[in-house]
């Protein structure tokens, strides 16, 4: 697919950089930041016929980076929402069964009996929080390192592709979760959580465009939030 001319093209000298400084100054002064891009005719974008359109207009103004970001965000969010809602509760119930605990209230009662059994050294009800603790510790400890690598590498897309592929490989076995493999799937999910988080960081690094000043983990929300804050503050004034 062809890159959009509305995106930041590092080789395009006509693209004017709106630095974070100018943006925040505009916010502080209560002024509206000046636009730097004019609408680009669709023919000039060179978009392929298969590019998705809505109401006759190319989706996201033909900005392929924006569509790419939306698809990646959608993919990661859906995976973790579905896992949170369905896979993780299933893992918890499987762990309870392995620990010899009841997962349903006995007939005539409305309370699930307390589970005092253990699996792999912990109570089954600690499984999900243990998974989250491990993923969070790994992510927090590695954030500065991963951020620095992503920020300075000239191979961001290659890194993104590798981690997207690895995520797909790690996600596949979760389809076949069952009572025999729940622990392996739990470990797999920990690795998937970390790899998915790295993919998220690489994705963020795609958003600031060519601005060096805005490059360290600044993602689209920072600028959008600045803009929104500006509007709100203006109304307050």
């Amino acid at each position: 697919m062809t890159k959009s001319t509305t995106g930041d093209n590092p080789s395009n000298p006509a693209t004017t950089e709106l630095g974070c400084h100018e943006m925040s100054q505009a916010v502080a002064n209560g002024e509206s930041p000046p636009p730097h891009h004019e609408a680009v005719p669709e023919e000039a974008m060179g978009l392929p016929r298969c590019y998705p359109r809505c109401c006759g207009r190319p989706l996201f103004r033909g900005n392929t980076d924006a569509l790419g970001y939306a698809l990646d965000l959608m993919a990661r969010s859906t995976v973790f929402a579905c896992a949170g809602a369905f896979l993780l509760p299933a893992l918890l119930k499987m762990a309870k069964l392995e620990a010899g605990c009841e997962i349903d209230p006995p007939d005539g009662t409305n309370k699930v009996p307390d589970c005092h059994g253990k699996v792999y050294g912990i109570r089954p009800s600690s499984l999900l929080t243990t998974i989250l603790t491990i993923v969070a510790v790994l992510s927090t400890a590695m954030l500065p390192l991963v951020g620095a690598i992503v920020d300075t590498t000239t191979h961001r897309r290659a890194i993104g592709r590798v981690f997207a592929f690895v995520s797909s490989i790690l996600l596949f076995p979760t389809i076949f979760v069952n009572q025999d493999n729940w622990f392996i799937i739990s470990v797999d999910f920990i690795v998937l959580g970390f790899v998915g988080w790295v993919l998220c960081v690489v994705n963020y690094a795609y958003l600031p465009g060519k601005s060096r000043r805005c490059s360290w983990f600044v993602f689209v929300l920072s600028r959008a939030a600045l803009y929104k804050a500006h509007n709100i503050l203006q109304q307050q004034n």
Binding site: G68, T154, P208
Partner: peptide
């Protein structure tokens, strides 16, 4: 969709 990008710095 994503194109190649240079290092931020």
């Amino acid at each position: 969709l994503y194109g190649p990008r240079p290092a931020a710095h």
